[in-house]
Design a protein around this nucleic acid. Sequence first.
RNA 1: AGGGGGAUCGUCUAAUGGCAGGACCGCAGACUCUGAAUCUGCUUAUCAAGGUUCGAAUCCUUGUCCCCCUGCCA
Length: 767
Amino acid sequence: MSDRPAVRRSNFLTDIIDADLAAGRHSRVVTRFPPEPNGYLHIGHAKSIALNFGLAQQYGGVCHLRMDDTNPVTEDTDYVESIQFDVKWLGGQWDGEVRYASNYFGKMYELAEALVLAGKAYVDHQTVEEIRKNRGDFNTAGVNSPFRDRSVQENLDWLRRMKAGELADGTCVLRAKIDMASPNLLMRDPLVYRIRHAHHHRTGDTWCIYPMYDYAHPLEDALEGITHSICTLEFETNRELYDWFLDQTGPWTPRPRQYEFARLALGYTVMSKRKLLQLVVEKRVSGWDDPRMPTVAGMRRRGVTPEALRDFADLIGVAKNNSMVDIGKLEYCIRQDLERTSRRALAVLKPLAVTLTNWPDSTIEQLTVPWWPGDASKGTRQVPFAKHLIIEHGDFAEEPAADWKRLAPGREVRLYGAYFVKCFGVDRDPLTKEINGLRCSVDLHTKGGTAPDGRQPAATLHWVAAKTALTADVRLYDRLFAVEQPDADGDFLQHLNPDSLTVLQARLEPALASAAPGDSFQFVRQGFFVADAKDSQPGAPVWNRTITLRDTWAKPAAPAKPAARPAAEVRAKPAAPQLGEGHQARLDWLEKHPEAKELCTQLGAEPSAFAAFAQNPADLEFLRQAIAGGARPADAFRWQRNELAGLLAARKTTTPPFGGKEFAAFVRLVTDATITTGAAKQLLEHWCEHGGDPLALVDHLGLRRVDDTAAIQVAVRQVMDQHSAEVLRFRAGEAKLLGVLLGAAMRAAKGADPQTVRATLLQQLGE
RNA sequence: AGGGGGAUCGUCUAAUGGCAGGACCGCAGACUCUGAAUCUGCUUAUCAAGGUUCGAAUCCUUGUCCCCCUGCCA
C-alpha cells in the first residue's frame, strides 16, 4: 500500500490469521472493504481501509472493494464514484473489478428458495407492528408467527409472487425459521427479504425484493471467497446469524469468519453518517468536502495527505476496546508528514507595517532563498526586499514580557533569509492610538541573515515586502467542535466551535502566485497551508490552513488537560470484598442441596465459590467421578476448577475429552509426586488436545519427576552460562530477573521439582 | 432483566505463565536563520478482592464499571 518499509503489525487479527495459516485452514488471506454507497467515506472508514488492505498486503493476499448495495432507496451511483476515488487516494488497491452485492442478487435468491425448500424459511404476512410486537424483548420470548408453519409449497408460491412483483411493498416478508425464544433477538426468525418497488442504481427495475444485510453479507463474503470478514464491534451480536446462514447454505470453501474490531472514535468531531449529513444539510459546513469535516474528501481538501492518514491508522492500532482517540495523534501524523514534504514560504496573516529608514526609497533587492531551509540544491526562489515591509502584528511588543524574544523597541531581530533590523520607533493612529507602524534600521552587513561579527538575534521573523506582496484569502480552520465529545449528551450542534473558520486577507510573498491547487507549503512560523483545490484561480490561489505548527511558547489554544485522577480518591475506595446478592443466593442453593454441601465440607472449599461451581450438574458429576476414581477430593476440585476449566474454555467447549475416572488417574500422578505441578499442566494441556492415556503420556512426553540433584545442578549451570547477562544484572541487584533465570532453568531441568531448582539456582547465583 | 463484548500510563496500544515495552501528550535540557523540526533525559499504568503457581497483566472464582443488541437500515 505504500513504499515505506513494511512494519510487522501485531494485533488480535494477525494472531487469528497466523493461527489459521498455521493450522492450514486457509492458504491465503482474502479480505474485503464493503461500504454502503449511501454517503461519503470518513476517517473511520480510512481506518478500516488501512486494516483490510493492510492485512491483505501483509500476508500476500488480496482485498476486495465491494459496494454493499442491498438497499436501493438510500444508495446512489455518485457515492460509488466518490468511494472509489477515496479508496484509491488512500492507496487501496483492490483485487480485480469493483464488486457489488447486487451482482449476487440472482444467487442469493436461489439460495433463499433452497432455504424455503429445506423448511428453513417462510413467508410472513404479519404487519411491521405485529412482527415487532411478537419478537418479544430481552426478558420475554417471542411468539411464533401464525404463518410460521405454512407448507413448503405455499411458502414457495408466495416467495415467487413477491419476486414477480405481484405484491405491494410491506405485504409480506421472507423470514428465516430459527428460534423465537432465542436470547439473541437477531435469531428470532430474522427477515431475509423485503419487498421494495424501487429503482436500483445498478439492477434498475429487475428486482422488487431485496435481501437484508444479515442474509446478504455472509453470502457476499462466501461467494467471493473471503477468508476474514472484518467489521466493527456493534456487529458482534450479528455473528451468530452470519454463521447460521452460512451453515444453512454451505458448505463453503473457504468458509468466511467474521471478526469485530473497535470503530474509530475521535475527539472534537462526530463520525456518524447521520450527523455528518445533518451538518451538510443544515449548512453548518460548506459540504461533504468542507475542510473541517472528518470525511476523506474534507481532509484531502484541508491538505491532509494519505500518508498521514495511513500513519495515523498504524499509530492507533487495532483492538476490541471501546476507545476515544486523542485528536492530537492525528495532528501529530499530519505535521510529521507535511514537515518533511513541504516547501517553506513567507506569509503574513495579520500585518504590521515596517519602514526601514536607512534603506533607499526605490530599491527593491531580489534575495535568493531556498525552498527548503539549509538546502538550496532542492530549489530556490526570489524574494523581494524593500524599504516598506510587513511583519506579523503579533511579533512586536511595545512592553515585552520577560521571556519575549521577538521585536520590541531597541531590540534587533533577523528577518528570515534577509537582514537584521532594529526597532527604534513606533507610529500610532492619531485617533485610536493603536500601533500602526514601526520605524526600524537595517544592518546592511547582515544580508542573507548572518552578521560578520557573529552575533545572533534572539528571534527570526517572517516578513514580506509591502509593494510586491500578494493579497490572498487565507482560511484558518480549527476543530469543528469545542468539546471532546460533542455527541455525549443532548444536541451535538450546540457544541459547534464558533471559531472553527476564520477568513483573513493575508499578504504573501510573490512566488506563491504560481502554486498549483493542492500544493502544500509551510508558511514559516505559522503552519501548513494548502492551495485550495476548489476555489483557487490560476495565478491566485486561495489558501487553507491544514494545521498550525506546534507552539510551546504561547499555548492559549491548548485544551485544558484533564486533571490526573486524585490519588486520594483511588485509595478511598473500599478494599473490602463486595459480596453481591449472588453470594447469598449461592449459599441458599447450597443449603437446599445437602449432598453438595457435604462435599463442600469434605473439600474444605469456600462455600460460595463451591456452590457456583457445583450449580453446573455436569461439572459436579465429573468431580464426583474423579473422587470415586480415587483422586484426593481437594486436589481433584482444584485441578478441575483452576486448570481444566481454563483449558476447555480456550477450546470453546465445556465437556472434557475424558471422564472423571480418567481424570482421577491424572490427579493421582500429581498427588503421589510422580510428576510436578508444572509438568502436570503440560500433560493436561496435551491430553485435552490429543487425548490418550495420562499414565502413558508421562513417559511419552518425558515428564516424570526428576530428583537427580546432580542433573539439576548441571542444568542450572548451563542456564547460567547461556544467560550470563541476566546473571550479571541479577547479581547487580535486579532481583526480578530471578524469574527469567528460574523459568529457563525449569525448562532445562525438565521434570524437576521447582523448589529444588530454585534452591539450586539461588545457591549457584550466590557463589 | 436476557444475550454478546470490553477493562494495562492522561490517551492509543504491546507483552499469549518468566525484565510491564512502544507511541502520543506533558516536563526539563541541548541545538536552531521557524518559540517549528531534530536530539537527550524524565514523570506516569495492569479495575477490585480472593485463589492456583517457584513465579500471574496473563489461569480460576467472585465482584465493580463501560459498550453493543428489541429497523421491513447497514
